[in-house]
Amino acid sequence: MRDKIQLGRRTAAPDGEVVVFLIGMRVNHLWALHRWLPVFFAMPAMLRELVRDRSAGLLHHVLLTGLPRTYYVVQYWESKEKLLDYARSPERKHHSWWGRLNRYVRESKGHVGIWHEMYVVPPGRYESLYGDMPVSGLGKAYGVAPAGAGARGRMKVAV
C-alpha cells in the first residue's frame, strides 16, 4: 500500500517533548545463524505487541537496515515514562526477551552485537521538513502542520 503524497511543505507538529528510541543489532559473523537469528526475531515480536496495544505509548516505528549486517528500528514514543514502563513491565514481551537477549549476546562471543539510544528532546529543539512526500518520521508519529517559517522559526531558537 502506498502512502498518500502530501503536496507542499509540512513540518511535524508535536505538542511538547519528542521521544525517539533507536534500537538495533549488528551481525558480526553471518555464518553463525544460530547465534544471531534469535536476536533478529525478538524485535518484531515486541513491535507486534506494541502495535496491538497503542496504550503502551509507541506512536510510530520504522524498520531500517544497513545490509547485510546491521538492522535497526527508529521508534517514536508518547513519553519517556511510557517507554521505560514498557521496558520494565513483567507482563510485556520486552521483560522476558531482555534476559534471553543478554544471554544470546553473552554466549555468542562476539557473533552478534546489540545497541540502543534514547533521545528526549524538549519543545523547540527539533526541526523537520517534508516536501511533496507522504507523512513520515516525526510527522507520522506526532502529526503534521504547514511548514510556514524556515528552520529557525520552526525550532524557536537561533540556528
Rank of each mutant, 00 (worst) to 15 (best):
N102W: 12
A87D: 01
S96V: 11
V51H: 01
T65D: 05
T70G: 07
R54T: 14
R69L: 03
A56I: 11
E81Q: 14
A87Q: 02
S108K: 05
L59K: 09
P90L: 09
R100M: 02
R92E: 07
H95V: 03
E78K: 08
W77A: 03
A56T: 12
V73C: 02
S79D: 01
W98H: 13
L83Y: 15
G66S: 09
V105G: 10
Y72A: 01
D85R: 15
R88P: 12
R92H: 11
L50P: 09
H111F: 10
V51E: 05
R92N: 08
K93R: 07
R103A: 08
V51K: 04
K80C: 09
Y76P: 04
E91R: 12
D85L: 07
S79W: 06
V51G: 07
H61N: 01
D85T: 15
D85H: 09
R69E: 11
S89C: 14
Q75I: 11
S96D: 09
A56Q: 13
Y71G: 06
H60W: 12
A87W: 04
S96M: 07
R103D: 12
R92C: 07
L59D: 04
E107A: 08
N102A: 14
V74K: 06
R69A: 11
T65Y: 02
V73A: 03
W97C: 05
G66Y: 08
V112Y: 06
S108T: 10
T70C: 03
V74N: 00
H60P: 13
R88K: 11
E78W: 06
H61D: 00
W77R: 00
H60C: 12
R100K: 05
L50Y: 04
Y76W: 05
L58W: 02
L83I: 15
H94W: 02
L50W: 06
R88C: 10
L83R: 11
K109E: 13
V51Y: 01
H111A: 13
L84F: 10
D53W: 00
K80M: 08
W97T: 09
Y76M: 01
V62R: 15
K80A: 14
H94S: 03
G110E: 02
H111I: 06
R88Q: 15
A87P: 05
W97Y: 07
K82I: 14
Y76D: 07
S79F: 10
L84W: 09
A56D: 12
L64R: 12
G110H: 03
L63Q: 15
E91V: 13
R106S: 09
R88E: 11
S108Q: 00
K109R: 14
L101F: 01
R52L: 06
T65L: 00
K80R: 14
V51R: 06
R100P: 07
E81C: 03
